[in-house]
Amino acid sequence: MESIFLSHHFDNEIIPVIDSFKRLIESHDLEVVDGHRLEGQQLTDAVAKRIKSVDAMIVILSKREEGKTSDWVLHERSAAFTHKIPFIAIIEEGMNNNGPFQAFEYIHFKPDNLVETLLKVSETIFKWKVRIGEQIEVHLEPDDIVATVRENAGQSDIVKYRFLQKRGIWGDWKDAVVIPKSAGVSLLLDGVTKNSEIQIRVSTNNGTWNSDVVNRNLRILVS
């Protein structure tokens, strides 16, 4: 897990609340992404791209005129739902939580007393990190496979990986990011959890090679 989209309006009175949530997210070593400088527009491709790029969303539903929240924030929450981004709503006390999202997880907050809310959100972030996993860097071996990957660097889909799931069921193959280095070749793998079991496949026009299944081993031997 790398980043969280923090959806909120930009009125001055909510800034201290938003700053508290930003500090919380960053304390989990995650990047904070938001729609800053884009509010007031339609949900453009630029905003949708930001939302699709994150791992989760925290939606701050705070009061504005007549006790309502920002339509912009509601649009961002809908976009998270559309793109299957996990989200949690943080709703200011006194606001209704009606509509199609009332059955989804939410937490109430008081702007002048955020301690309990921040603790609950921190627990949610921890659960997301466990479920979503993280990006790790692994080192490819042996030298002849490394040389093959270097020689075919222009070929698409040359290195893939997959997870061995519960009950021995394989997940789908995913594209690995290949990083040539002076000491060899590294791969970036997303969605890796503490107990992930991983297999690497190298495919070129000359053949296909598979690694053994490893548990977060930082050196992957392909044969």
Rank of each mutant, 00 (worst) to 15 (best):
I58W: 04
L118E: 03
Q41R: 14
H75S: 13
R50W: 11
Q42M: 12
H108F: 12
R37D: 15
L118C: 06
K120G: 01
R131L: 14
K63Y: 05
A103R: 13
L61I: 10
F87P: 00
M57T: 01
R64C: 00
E66M: 06
R77V: 10
M95C: 00
E93V: 07
T124S: 07
L61E: 05
A103G: 11
A56Q: 01
K110A: 07
R37W: 14
A89M: 11
S78T: 12
H83G: 04
I51F: 09
L118Q: 08
I90N: 01
D45E: 15
E76T: 02
L119R: 12
K49N: 15
Q42R: 15
K110Y: 09
R77F: 14
P86I: 05
G35L: 10
M95K: 01
I132T: 10
L118V: 06
R64V: 02
I91A: 05
S70R: 05
K120R: 13
H75D: 08
I60P: 00
E123F: 08
K127H: 11
F81K: 08
S70A: 14
E93L: 11
E123K: 14
F109N: 00
S70N: 04
A79C: 15
F104T: 00
G35P: 06
P100L: 11
D112S: 08
N113P: 03
E93A: 07
Y106L: 08
M95N: 03
E65R: 15
H75V: 06
S62D: 11
L38S: 08
G67D: 05
G40E: 09
L74A: 11
L119I: 14
I132G: 10
H75M: 15
K129W: 06
T69I: 06
V121W: 06
G40W: 07
S70W: 04
T44N: 13
R64G: 00
L114G: 06
I125W: 11
P100Q: 11
P100M: 13
A56N: 05
E93N: 09
T117H: 04
T124D: 10
I58N: 01
S122Y: 05
L118A: 09
H108V: 07
L119H: 08
N97M: 08
R77T: 09
I85H: 01
G35S: 14
Y106R: 04
G67E: 03
R77W: 15
S122I: 02
L114N: 02
V47A: 04
V130L: 12
K120F: 11
Q41D: 13
H108M: 09
L114W: 03
I125F: 12
W72P: 00
S78K: 13
R50D: 04
V130N: 12
A80H: 01
F104V: 00
L118S: 02
L43K: 09
I107N: 05
T124K: 15
M57Q: 02
T69S: 10
S78P: 05
L74Q: 10
E105Q: 13
A46G: 09
M57E: 03
N97G: 08
D45R: 15
L74P: 00
R50M: 07
E39C: 14
K127V: 04
V59Q: 03
L61W: 07
L38R: 06
L74G: 09
G35V: 09
S53G: 09
L38T: 11
L38W: 08
R131A: 14
T117A: 09
E116H: 12
I88V: 07
G67K: 04
S62A: 14
P100D: 10
E92C: 01
D34K: 03
I51R: 00
P111V: 03
